[in-house]
Design a protein around this nucleic acid. Structure first.
Length: 221
DNA sequence: GCGACAG
DNA sequence: ATCTTGTCGC
């Protein structure tokens, strides 16, 4: 797919914060999806050579049958350290490289990490969504910010994730008796719809098939 | 000031 | 994220 523009990548945290504060207001928290949804994609990252090389993987699956229809990999030098709250600056450049190679344009992209469940409401899923102006969902394996009530250990149950009296996402049980995942909207989708798609993409394991396939690619030696 | 902290 | 084998439980 064609990527038309992206801002210059920051060199320090001050610049990074300025970008997050400027772009956060572009996030669209309601459903603006192409219907019907035919393809969903997962993106994930891996690192090589002591972390100096970033490896981005994209997997496009048909929906709702979740069959892999296209994949791509991209490598580039790692140019930003891992700092909680600034993950997108470390991972998105390589992800854009990998997405550029894809021919089948997905209708939704599921990201490994938070969407608006972020200190400045602009985690990696939102950042990628705004840059591409495409629907994105954040599915994180652990918590960055927010609090929530305990939730039943049955698949499909969820609780709102709250931060400063605001609902910023959902803690979702994708598999009975297994640790939940943290779902938040990235861009052009509502929280309830995001939860529905995450469950639809998670027929068997804790993580969505999109993420699992992308993860295998990103880890493949 | 102290603790928390996506991947 | 990554370094790494076996092991507990359904």
């Amino acid at each position: 797919m064609k990527i038309y523009q992206d801002h210059a990548w920051p060199v320090n945290l001050e610049e990074a914060i300025a970008i997050q504060e400027r772009l956060r207001y572009q996030v669209i928290p309601s459903d603006q999806l192409k219907q019907p949804v035919q393809y969903v994609a997962g993106v994930d990252m891996g690192f090589e050579s002591n972390g100096t090389i970033s490896r981005a993987a994209v997997a496009v699956l048909s929906f709702p049958d979740l069959q892999v229809v296209e994949t791509s990999l991209a490598y580039r030098p790692t140019s930003f350290p891992y700092i909680p709250g600034f993950l997108s600056f470390r991972e998105i450049p390589a992800v854009l490289d990998a997405l550029e190679k894809i021919k089948i344009i997905p209708d939704i992209i599921l990201c490994d990490g938070q969407g608006i469940a972020h200190p400045r409401r602009f985690g990696i899923a939102s950042h990628l969504g705004v840059i591409l102006d495409m629907p994105t969902i954040g599915v994180a394996k652990s918590l960055l910010i927010g609090k929530h009530e305990q939730l039943p250990d049955t698949k499909g149950s969820w609780q709102p994730l709250i931060h400063k009296s605001e609902t910023i996402g959902a803690v979702l049980r994708t598999r009975s008796g297994v640790k939940p995942v943290y779902v938040s909207i990235g861009h052009r989708i509502s929280l309830n719809t995001a939860i529905d798609y995450v469950l639809s993409c998670t027929p068997k394991y804790r993580l969505p098939e999109t993420t699992r396939i992308a993860d295998k690619l990103a880890s493949a030696r």
